[in-house]
Simulated assay, not measured.
Amino acid sequence: MIKISPSILSADFANLERDIRKISTADYVHVDVMDGVFVPNISIGLPVVKAIRPVTQQPLDVHLMIVEPGRYAGRFCDAGADIVTMHVEADTEENLLAAIEVIHAKGKRAGVVLKPATPASAVLPYLERVELILVMTVEPGFGGQSFMAGQLDKIRAIRALIEERNPACELEVDGGIGPDTCRACVDAGANVLVAGSAVYGAEDIPARIQLLRG
């Protein structure tokens, strides 16, 4: 089954509890954490994750767009994250592997993320140790960008690696996902779709989630 993880980056931050309840038919709640260093934007952090944890029973899918994510991975687990994903570009392989162990020790799921310019082979050191791989189909840092169709080959390549080495691992895609791009991602091998403006900009949010799920 295709899972949908709406990004609350596109929600109304003044009414975050209301807007999280609007996506109750989705599978995950995607939380974009940005530090203004790894990406040129600053978003939400630990206090907001902790605050929204009681609002929903859905898994919190926390995407760390921060330098040296291992410094905070455990703390995000403690704040309520169920899945914590970290960029392979954000730290050394040694530190990221250590952070994955910290996340697992907290009883949570770990994942790695690839920017558009990062090749599929970058997942190899982590592939058998994570529960999710996230491919960015826009440059991370801002919502509402256009889908990069050139990333479909990378999605296919990573799907092949997953099937060979870790079939239980989920493959998530984030960036420019909407009714016109979701099917191409699924056909390429993705099984989790992150969508922000495509969900929150819809008149009927449950219908849009169902449309994206296919």
Rank of each mutant, 00 (worst) to 15 (best):
P206E: 09
P179H: 13
V62H: 06
A160L: 12
L64C: 00
A26C: 05
A14V: 13
G80N: 07
R71G: 13
R109K: 15
A98L: 14
A202P: 02
K3M: 12
L64I: 05
D61K: 09
K154N: 01
I42T: 02
I8M: 02
V186H: 08
R109A: 14
A26N: 01
A99N: 04
I155Y: 01
D78A: 15
A11Q: 02
G201T: 06
E203I: 10
R165Y: 12
H87F: 09
L132P: 09
V138P: 00
V29S: 04
E101R: 14
A195N: 02
A51C: 08
S5G: 09
F142E: 03
L171W: 04
G176Y: 04
Q57R: 15
N191S: 06
R208C: 14
A184S: 11
I177H: 03
G80D: 04
Q210I: 12
E163R: 15
N15H: 15
I209G: 01
G36M: 07
L97I: 10
V49Y: 06
I177W: 04
N191M: 04
R159V: 09
M65A: 07
G196E: 02
L134F: 05
G214S: 14
A157R: 11
L212A: 07
D174L: 00
G144M: 02
A157V: 11
I158D: 08
V67P: 09
L64H: 04
T118L: 06
A105P: 11
T137S: 01
I42Q: 02
R18A: 13
N41E: 00
S5Y: 11
